[in-house]
Computed example of a mutant assay.
Amino acid sequence: MTDPKLYTCAGSRGLRCTWAAEEAGVQIDLKLLPFPPRFAAPEYLEINPLGTVPLLIDGETRMTESCAIAHYLATRGGMSDLAVAPGERDYAEYLDFTYHADATITFPQTVYMRFALFEKDKGWAEAGEAYAKWFWKRLVKVEQRLDRREYLCADRFTVADICVGYALILAERVGLDDGVPESLKAYRTRLMARDGYRRAVEREMAGPRAI
Rank of each mutant, 00 (worst) to 15 (best):
G59C: 00
E93G: 08
I47N: 06
Y44R: 00
E46P: 11
R76V: 12
V84K: 01
E93Y: 12
G87N: 02
D81Y: 13
Y72A: 02
A85Y: 12
D90L: 04
E93S: 07
L55Q: 07
T61C: 00
A70T: 05
L55F: 07
V84P: 02
R76N: 13
L50A: 13
S66Y: 05
D58L: 03
R62P: 05
I69G: 02
P86H: 01
R89P: 09
R62M: 13
T75S: 06
I57K: 12
A68M: 07
L73D: 00
L73H: 04
A70P: 01
D90M: 04
T75D: 14
L45D: 07
R62W: 11
T52G: 08
D81P: 03
S80T: 05
M79N: 13
D58W: 08
T75N: 09
R76T: 12
L50G: 02
A70C: 00
I69W: 12
E88M: 07
I57W: 14
G77D: 06
G59P: 00
E65Q: 12
N48M: 10
L45P: 03
T61I: 14
L82Y: 06
A85G: 01
I57Q: 13
G59M: 07
Y44N: 09
L45V: 10
V53H: 08
E46A: 15
T75W: 08
R89M: 11
G51A: 09
L56H: 07
V53G: 07
E65A: 05
T61S: 09
T64G: 07
P86N: 10
